[in-house]
């Protein structure tokens, strides 16, 4: 084989090798960046609770929820106080603030109850996972809902559903 032929093949192989090396790194990085987006966020108990929801509530029943809970409820044609497309929702940031700080992080059961009533929620959606009502991820404070004159537990498999008393 002549020198120029050998050099042509070698140079193309070298270009392929360099590109393949960096392409492999980029692909690994892309897969690693994409993996967290596969996290369903919702818990297995929460998904199982949808069976109770379908059996015991009417379509479009509103649940006081965080964003991911509300969107899970939509999948069975119920509604959350949060979740979905916020593009044209009136006072949407106020709603997020209410659900974050005055419902799930309320100082009292009564404060949470008033927020549930404000948004016409019939039930409270209280998952066994971290909550995201719009501003920050937070753990569940069960003290707001348990042994309260304002809420009545109607489902518990780890994930809990409370009826909002009228």
């Amino acid at each position: 084989m002549r020198f120029d032929e050998l050099a042509r093949i070698a140079s193309v192989v070298a270009i392929f090798a360099v590109v393949a090396y960096f392409a492999n790194q980029d692909l690994e990085s892309a897969l690693n960046q994409a993996k967290p987006w596969m996290n369903p966020v919702v818990s297995q108990n929460e998904v199982a609770a949808l069976g109770w929801v379908k059996a015991n509530t009417a379509e479009r029943t509103i649940f006081a929820s965080d964003i991911f809970g509300g969107e899970l409820l939509m999948s069975v044609l119920r509604e959350g106080t949060e979740g979905g497309d916020w593009a044209i929702v009136p006072n949407v940031v106020q709603r997020m603030h209410d659900m974050q700080y005055d419902f799930y992080e309320a100082n009292s059961s009564e404060q949470a109850w008033r927020i549930a009533l404000k948004y016409n929620a019939e039930y409270a959606w209280v998952p066994d996972r971290a909550l995201f009502p719009g501003f920050a991820w937070k753990g569940v404070n069960y003290a707001i809902f348990d042994n309260s004159p304002y809420f009545e537990k109607v489902f518990d498999n780890g994930h809990r559903i409370y009826k909002v008393k009228k």
Partner: peptide, 23 residues
């Protein structure tokens, strides 16, 4: 292959309002 990660969890991805479209 790279997109096959969508099968790995017990529930499909929920980031980005996926369930609104399911609704």
């Amino acid at each position: 292959y790279s997109h096959s990660m969508v099968w790995k969890e017990f529930y499909y991805p929920t980031f980005g309002n996926t369930n609104l479209h399911v609704a």
